[in-house]
Design a protein around this nucleic acid. Structure first.
Length: 471
RNA sequence: GGUUUCGUAGUGUAGUGGUUAGCACUCCAGACUUUGAAUCUGGCGACCUGGGUUCGAAUCCCUGCGAGACCUCCA
């Protein structure tokens, strides 16, 4: 038996000051990129008229009133369970004032519409919550038709009901809002959906909170919402993570109310590797080239050579052989130092015919395309974990500004390698192309690439078992 | 302080009165290997604590301990 579910995401655009068209457009585009097509996308602002009519009905039932207290006065009264002095004003008076609010005849801050819930309730979330506030701000979606706007607590439940959904899904912090959610629906005799809360996805060594992300971006700690170090969908996409990997990652997790879950980033990396292993073309790139003049000059990785050999080391050393991948074995015969004896500018090597089977060290390499012609030069961007500790959001905060997590940022989370060499086949790579650079990891073409120079982001490293020694 | 939510292998979870407590990642071992990658085979590892109900409890009830959330004219 198959179960079919339709999902209707809604933009809760009740605050015109906080809504931005570019965010809305981006969210819709990135959800589409992820491969999900909602059954319908709606806006709370589509229901502004109905919401207002229901507010009038609440007033007629004597279940709402226009209040003139300041936010501070309201807060104080809530602390002492005290009714507003305007709570029991005549219905006709509140009706008239509500209409005046709607027509823009009352100044911002001079009145609110509050629901007559229960100032003596067990939970503060029932203390005559505000249903409407005055804001002389046009709405990005609804235009300038309104100067009063509904609150989350008034609008959310009602639009759920008006849309006739079965289940309303939201994150855990809304759990304590349930009493108010159902109070509104019961008061108006409207259909009541189920409400299910679930905990937010947290991934180690990073942050997922919108508030913190916003801060990282606006304060320029990162390079924007699509910085490849971020776990935003835009960031992951730019980094080279595919939608399939993300969906696979999400699919493997439970949806619970567990409050402290923290998924190790390893797990995301596992899914990214799994996907790219299947889909990425293989190519060879040398990040830090070491010159090996030969019949044709080749470049190997600096780290694939060292002066001292040892049993568990498979690369080149003086007098030692290794295999050039897809080519032939070579033996290092001479080391050429620079002015500084610690600096090695090139090594001399020769074909080694004795190395015929079971090579231990297989090295990637890039050759000059023609004698004396430099190989294709590319820029490589390497990323490490954005934060040093596992759960930066959970760091003890003793500062008023709450900056402990910012101080946990990894100063080495991004490294730019300028002088890498790539095989000629990569010259035609375009944004969207992904590769495994053999022995190095998975890489994707970045949007910063130009006709003169390609830029590759490292999406994820290969698994590294070097420290475990030879098998 | 009030209200409220959560607690199953290292990590994330499945389980809703009767299982050898399942899955995945991590970890360990072996095999294979022209990527110390990939692949294949095997393994280690858990029901926060105490009490109660019951023939029988991870599952129901209570106490304790621990960890969160909410308390904005933000959502």
């Amino acid at each position: 038996m198959d179960i079919f579910i339709s999902v209707m995401p809604r933009f809760d655009d009740t605050n015109p000051e906080a809504e931005k068209k570019e965010y809305i457009d981006h969210i819709q585009e990135i959800v589409h990129w992820l491969g999900w097509e909602p059954y319908k996308v709606t806006y709370t602002s589509d229901y502004f008229q109905a919401l207002y009519e229901h507010a009038v009905e609440l007033l007629r039932k004597g279940l709402a009133y226009v209040d003139h207290q300041t936010a501070e006065q309201i807060r104080k009264d809530r602390e002492t369970n005290t009714d507003s002095p305007w709570r029991d004003r005549p219905i006709e008076e509140s009706l008239q004032l509500c209409e005046d609010m709607r027509r823009g005849l009352i100044a911002e801050g001079a009145a609110t519409l509050r629901m007559k819930q229960d100032m003596q309730n067990d939970t503060r979330n029932m203390y005559d919550l505000i249903a409407y506030r005055i804001k002389f701000t046009p709405h990005p979606h609804a235009g300038d038709k309104w100067c009063i706007y509904p609150s989350y607590d008034y609008a959310h439940c009602m639009v759920d009901s008006l849309e006739n959904i079965t289940h309303s899904l939201c994150t855990l912090e809304f759990d304590v809002r349930r009493p108010s959610y159902y109070w509104v629906l019961v008061a108006l005799g409207l259909y009541q959906p189920y409400v299910w809360e679930y905990s937010r996805l947290n991934i180690s060594h990073n942050i997922m909170s919108k508030r913190k992300l916003n801060r990282l971006v606006t304060e320029k700690w990162v390079d924007g919402w699509d910085d490849p170090r971020l776990l935003t969908l835009a960031g992951l996409r730019r980094r080279g993570v595919s939608a399939a990997a993300i969906n696979s990652f999400i699919r493997g997790m439970g949806i619970t109310r567990s409050v402290n879950s923290l998924i190790p980033v390893d797990r995301l990396e596992y899914h990214i590797r799994e996907e790219l292993n299947k889909t990425a073309s293989r190519a060879m790139v040398v990040l830090h080239p070491l010159k090996v003049p030969f019949s044709r000059t080749v470049y190997i990785e600096k780290t694939d050579f060292r002066l001292e050999d040892s049993k568990d080391y498979y690369g080149l050393a003086p007098g030692k052989s290794a295999l050039l991948s897809y080519a032939f074995p070579i033996k290092c015969t001479e080391v050429i130092h620079g002015d500084n004896p610690d600096e090695i500018v090139e090594i001399r090597a020769e074909y080694d015919p004795s190395k015929t089977s079971k090579p231990k060290g297989v090295l990637h390499w890039v050759a000059e395309p023609a004698p004396g012609v430099e190989p294709l030069k590319v820029e490589i961007r390497l990323f490490e974990k954005l934060f040093l500790s596992e759960n930066p959001a959970g760091l003890e905060d003793k500062e008023p500004e709450g900056t402990a997590w910012l101080r946990d940022l990894n100063p080495h989370s991004k490294e730019v390698v300028k002088g890498a060499y790539a095989v000629p086949s990569l010259a035609t790579a375009v944004v969207g192309d992904k590769f495994q650079f053999e022995r190095l990891g998975y890489f994707a073409v970045d949007t910063d690439s130009t006709p003169e120079e390609l830029v590759f982001n490292r999406t994820v490293t290969l698994r590294d078992s070097y420290g475990k020694g030879p098998r």
